[in-house]
Design a protein around this nucleic acid. Structure first.
Lengths: 331, 331
DNA sequence: CTGTTAGCGCTTTCAA
DNA sequence: TTGAAAGCGCTAACAG
């Protein structure tokens, strides 16, 4: 009985106008006589009419939505970014479609699917390492793409400099007088891991110091990796122990601290510790760390994307966000 | 030059078939002679054709997407839920549109917008307290709706029982021999807050005990709220101090612990402390707490939603997820 | 098995 | 200002 699907024709008929007019009041486009508009609006209310966005989008060739693409996990790292994204989208009546895409061979294909599906007007890819893939197909499309946490000149890009971050940490320790510094890196293969290693070496070399191979470990950014690495280091003869440890993530730094605690070693007195990320726990444990502006990263990414969609950006936008060393109590 | 937008007609023409056939191979619907199908597939590859989903959706009257609606903040509480949602969506080729909607007067209207926009086939609302609103319009629509972390019989619903959770905590303390127990609740107005208070009273009364008004505090679930509340409690004459404190969130429990530390009070020896949520930090600080299965909540919500969309559910699905008391070192 | 045709519900010229 | 008509790109009968 209840004709569930009231459409623009129903409104037009009941209001005694053409669908073109209804469409016009819907979009506030062109002039519509106030009297007519009021009548239409009234009927829309009566019928409880709301436009079918799918149809609007198809007809207008815009999706009123953006895609945010993230790799495998929505972890705590990503929460701040997402908050920034959300806030930047606030007020805009633009939908956020969240895609989780693994970084494998099929990655670019899946992204192309999204692009050509026409369901979104723009794409924000967070730490997807797109610049390491074959992205020429994506370049051919004229859809705006912003890469967050990834530096490249082929797309708009907002990024952090891991090399600098690592240098900051090491220089800080160096200035404190430390000379034997251990570095517990993340995954060797990850961009973050390799860049942070570069930064460490660079900082050390600028003082004519070398990174001792026994004091360089790799892990997966997790607590247990830091714990294991530190255990290995502490199993070295004591004279080889470092006076400071820089961990590529706070989680690893926590593992380091645990390994130290088991040997009744205290930071910073016995061995100083610096982490990376500034996670909640780091604040609580008063770990000196490198803070990354994740919220800003998300926010700016969307700001740029929206501007790009509106054609308000010339060329490729590129911006490095500043890191900060948070001096606390472990170093 | 490059005719960017290759559509189904281009494919049909080049393959020498009708668009109906192309559509059939696209959807694997009906039989298509293998030879024809191969030809079409080949042409699609050549032309790098990918279907316009907007058009597909409009024509097929399905969106291939679901909406996940959450209130103001994507906070750490929500991360686990989102992970569960994501994992449940894995394999399905269904898009996830994330809507953040404030719980104000406009809430239901915004939700109706989403429903009638036809952009999604179903809705998962997480802790939105929809059952406290005027939701009859939503009920009229025949779109599947699943409420997560909210109990109701008008929609599918997956929920947690805060009353039970609070009872568990209090009973645990009672069994440990505590009789003077303080309760630091969350917001008085929140469903969680009021239910947990009910649970506390219920558990106490079952042993003929009363909740002393001086030992009942309200806060906003944050660390500083717990801290302040505990300070107030500790400013009472010492004979009025509780021997145990139950905080409605781990964050508040941490605040409690801080306030105690300042007075050189230890948990559990001086005063026992139980939290709620099982956040990361609680694990690290070894806080005894009530664990809520947030990941499962997200996962099951989507499972149910997908089934409902496929018409595989009779009546209203309703399930309570079990809480667990995690016994650690503060109580 | 497959081509043709009629929508899906809107936006957008084009005239009037 | 406004109505009519032509799409947007695809799905889904309906014949054949």
């Amino acid at each position: 009985m209840a004709k569930d699907k009231v459409n623009i024709y129903d409104v037009a008929k009941k209001a005694g106008v053409g669908i073109g007019t209804v469409s016009r009041v819907l979009n506030n486009s062109q002039k519509v006589k106030e009297e007519t508009r009021d009548k239409v609006l009234e009927v829309m209310k009566e019928l409880n009419y709301r436009p079918n966005k799918l149809a609007q989008n198809l007809a207008s060739q815009t999706a009123n939505a953006i895609a945010v693409i993230v790799p495998t996990f929505i972890d705590h790292y990503f929460v701040e970014v997402l908050k920034g994204i959300q806030d930047a989208l606030e007020e805009e009546k633009i939908d956020l479609i969240l895609y989780k895409i693994d970084k494998d061979e099929k990655m670019m294909d899946k992204i192309m699917d999204i692009v050509q599906s026409k369901k979104v007007d723009g794409i924000a890819a967070v730490t997807m390492d797109i610049s390491k893939q074959d992205y020429k197909d994506l370049l051919k499309e004229d859809i705006p793409v912003v890469l967050a946490d990834e530096k490249t000149s082929d797309f708009h890009s907002i990024y952090l400099d891991d090399i600098k971050g690592a240098e900051m940490a090491i220089n800080y320790l160096l200035n404190l007088g430390h000379k034997k510094i251990a570095f517990i890196d993340g995954l060797k293969e990850s961009q973050h891991g390799s860049d942070r290693l570069k930064g460490v070496k660079k900082a050390l070399e600028s003082r004519n110091l070398q990174l001792v191979s026994e004091l360089l470990k790799f892990g997966d950014f997790h607590t247990k990796d830091g714990y294991q690495s530190m255990q290995e280091i502490l199993s070295l003869p004591e004279e080889k122990w470092p006076t400071a440890v820089f961990a590529a993530s706070d989680n690893q730094a926590i593992g380091v601290l645990q390994a130290m605690e088991e040997k009744e070693l205290k930071a910073p007195d016995d061995i100083a510790v610096v982490g990376y990320d500034n996670i909640e726990l780091a604040k609580y444990l008063k770990i000196t760390t490198i803070w990354q502006p994740m919220y800003q990263l998300g926010h700016l990414t969307i700001e740029v994307l929206l501007k790009a969609i509106n054609g308000e950006i010339e060329g490729k936008f590129s911006k490095e966000l500043e890191l900060k060393l948070l001096k606390r109590e472990t170093a």
